[in-house]
Write a protein that binds this DNA or RNA. Structure first.
Lengths: 180, 180
DNA sequence: TCATAAGCGAACAATTTGTTCATTATCGAA
DNA sequence: TTCGATAATGAACAAATTGTTCGCTTATGA
């Protein structure tokens, strides 16, 4: 990617997250982002069609980091490691989430949080869908999957507001209520 | 309240929910609501300061219905009924939610859903905060409360998308993963 | 009946959005 | 280093939206 494009993209992301710390997503205008990023109006629109798309791009960037290991693991069709250690995996993801904490906190603060949570859950569905063979008792699998996904996503949201806990703490909290 | 006000308010709510079935919350302009409700521009602003406030008012109206029994129970300081039957209460609330299903489904569909969920959780915090004395094991109470509140709220959101289940089904699903 | 209160809608300024286009600057491959 | 390709710039534009004001009309209910 062209250096200029990278620079612009970075400037926009930084302006955007900076603004999100001060005001609500819906109260931020594209113009404000442009001014904060110190770029030309048409440049912004050359990169992102809308503010929503900018948010999506930012979330994608974050999740690419958070789920990087799990995503690349897919490539190696290594059945011996198929029996994955879900606890370790979760803790690992929590560590990555902690790295992006400032960004995530900004995004989570308002309506943008809903979109973040939605995208987040899309990734979590993939992560968890292999984990619920046994629990089919008398509750629909679909319900259980949604339950686990939401449970974890909300745990993370809660964590972002409570800095005092470590990734291990949160992992423990999460599994204390989960029938894995 | 003046008949005319009631009429206007009702027209706005109906126009709004009608529009929510067709398009996204953020893509609905105040002008569209005004046109759909067939009222004067200044009349809308005499009733609601912003679109967000309209949404809040609509949610409040719904929750007033959904939680009506529990809210009024507060008045009677009847300690004998203090040992409340949480399962019955939940099922009861689910019945009320089912009554408002069309409205709730419209609201839940997009960003407005985030606000609905937020307000919903405010009520649920009150409902659940008395229920978690014992589970303090090695997880913070605050975490447990958030967990239960989110769990129930997300269960309801899931239910709204899956019409085939009864209130009793959902109650059972909910309690099957909850350590009450 | 009649004073009060609500609804009406045109007109307003201000802001925002998304696009276009001619011009300038920067990049990176040869 | 050169030079064609690509990106950035910002002014200008139309269209839509927002929230308010104000003089007028209509409905309410005591």
């Amino acid at each position: 990617m062209d250096r200029r494009q990278k620079k612009t993209r970075k400037a926009v992301f930084e302006a955007f997250t900076g603004l999100l710390e001060k005001k609500t997503y819906s109260n931020i205008s594209v113009q404000e982002i442009i001014d904060a990023a110190n770029i030309g109006r048409s440049t912004f629109y050359a990169h992102f069609e809308t503010k929503d798309e900018l948010l999506r791009a930012l979330c994608t960037e974050i999740f690419e980091h958070v789920f990087s290991d799990d995503l690349h693991k897919e490539d190696t069709h290594d059945f011996s490691s198929k029996k994955k250690d879900i606890v370790g995996e979760i803790t690992h993801i929590l560590y990555h989430l902690n790295d992006s904490r400032p960004y995530i906190k900004s995004i989570l603060s308002c309506e943008s949080g809903e979109m973040f949570m939605q995208y987040f859950k899309e990734y979590l569905v993939q992560l968890f869908s292999g984990e619920l063979e046994k629990h089919s008792a008398d509750v629909p699998q679909e319900y259980m999957l949604n339950h686990m996904v939401c449970d974890f996503a909300e745990t993370v949201r809660w964590w972002m507001k409570h800095e005092q806990y470590s990734a291990e703490d949160i992992s423990r909290f999460f599994f204390s209520t989960t029938p894995f």
